[in-house]
Amino acid sequence: MDRLIKLELSRLNVHLPEKRMTLREALSSSKPEVMTRNGGKHALNREELEFLAGLLPEKNWNELQLPILIAFEPKFGKSAARISGKAGAYVVSKILDKEEAEELLIYRPEVAILRKKLPTTTQYVFIG
């Protein structure tokens, strides 16, 4: 049973990208996609990329790593998620109309709004 739980925990984050790509790289790519840890491909929607490009000043396009990670950690309590990275937090704060911060803590209804607006350029990550 313990092995099963460990296996389940190890499988929680297999959808995460091996290597993230910057917004500039994604915009210049003809088929923007990232490889996931389980060998799959995760395509990034061009409309979302253009939406993000509109929110972020061009000089910062290299700083925004995609997909933006929405991290769930039990230590933050239930239904709270963290957005790390200055550019990522900036973009999310713009979308959710929140105060800018280096690291952003958002809650379930805000996660739902964010996911609705950016279904391919955001990913969940579960930190135990």
Partner: peptide
Amino acid sequence: SLAQRGHDLLREKMDA
């Protein structure tokens, strides 16, 4: 403690 950790994370996943 392992089961509790697994439960918490799986519940987060389920909610998402």
